[in-house]
Amino acid sequence: MSEKIKFTIDGKEIEAEKGQLLVEVAAENGIYIPVLCHWKGVHPAGSCRICTVKINGRFMASCTTPVDANMVVESNTPEIQDLRKAIIEMLFVEGNHFCPSCEKSGDCDLQGLGYRYQMMVPRFPYAFERRELEASTPKIFLEKNRCIFCKRCVRMIKDEEGRSYFAFKGRGKHLEINLDTKLAEHMSEENARLAMKICPVGAILRKEVGFETPIGKRKYDHVPIGSEIENLQN
């Protein structure tokens, strides 16, 4: 039998099963902690750090932290809000995010967070690093300029034999998302669809479809990202 424990998030008492991931427990209780790399049911990567909270006074990623009895979690504090905003700003300057010409605009989680945290201008200088577009396979475009290295595609999109279509190449400043173009020649429609869906930004786009949803009807046109979780309880 799993052990029930109690702890608090921003003063609110929460009951959960010991060992559940903090980010998921929070969501079940109507508390939105933003994620870019986490995907429920997939082994956590802890790579984007946008879900950072303070646990008993220390910064931790809530997607990799199992809950335990009597933890004191701070999430919605000005300090952590600003930290998250800084991460969002960093992701914007590090890639090349020309939202007006991006097909994911309106449905993009990074952009959605920019709106939610009211990013008017990043505090960091723009890098304007140039990365190539991989457009040679039949089903998808890989627009490397928009990748935020969440590793969702690497972890989740695989062929029947379990081989990943995507992989990281290089390190640090030279890190790049890459597509196995040979394997991707036979990518199924289903995988292409899933890849575009799980990519939190506009780095993976399906070919031959585009701008399907009109402005005004897109995910984050009228409500902030995270509303679906917060509205659970209200």
């Binding site: 090349n96 020309f98 939202c99 007006p100 010409s101 008017m120 201008v121 723009y126 304007f128 690093e129």
Partner: peptide
């Protein structure tokens, strides 16, 4: 006041940055 994406981050003209 910086008005709009181009003023704030170069906008679409900045797509040439890096070339």
């Amino acid at each position: 006041i910086s008005l709009g994406e181009c003023a704030i981050m170069g906008g679409l003209p900045a797509m040439r940055n890096g070339i």
